[in-house]
């Protein structure tokens, strides 16, 4: 029986393997977060998954003081950032170290979410693992 699923599973499975997975359009080579069912640049559905090398730049960030749930209240204040990966897609993630716009980061699947799920984190250069 044909099923239905979103592209998120490839990203989540990648996180479980320790890899940051993204989508690339087979037609136009546009790179994007695995959050879409079509290529947002050209509209085709020929999306493949690739693994990011994990190098990027901070596009923006915030330090959250007023957290939305008990899990995050226990961690506040915490940083989150939008990171532009060198492959050409943008992802949100937590930050290790002091973020700044334009700062180069290395992404590793070193974070843990509220359900204990592995998550990407942006490591500022010089921040000790």
């Amino acid at each position: 029986m044909p099923g239905s699923s979103d592209t998120h599973e490839a990203y989540l499975a990648g996180c479980r393997r320790g890899e940051l997975v993204f989508s690339r359009c087979a037609a136009c080579r546009h790179a994007q977060l695995a959050a879409f069912r079509v290529c947002v640049a050209c509209g085709t559905t020929e999306l493949g998954t690739e693994v990011s090398a994990g190098n990027g730049t901070i596009a923006s960030f915030t330090i959250v003081h007023r957290a939305p749930s008990d899990f995050f209240k226990a961690r506040a204040p915490y940083a989150l950032a939008l990171v532009d990966l060198d492959e050409g897609f943008r992802a949100m993630m937590g930050v290790r170290g002091q973020p700044a716009i334009g700062e180069r980061v290395t992404v590793a699947i070193s974070g843990l979410g509220p359900a204990g799920e592995p998550l990407p984190e942006a490591w500022i250069e010089g921040e000790r693992r």
Binding site: Y11, L12, V64, G94
Partner: peptide, 14 residues
């Protein structure tokens, strides 16, 4: 977003 935002502690102000 339940997969790409909420696990990082996003809020509307954030």
């Amino acid at each position: 977003h339940p997969v790409y935002e909420r696990p990082f502690g996003i809020s509307v102000p954030a």
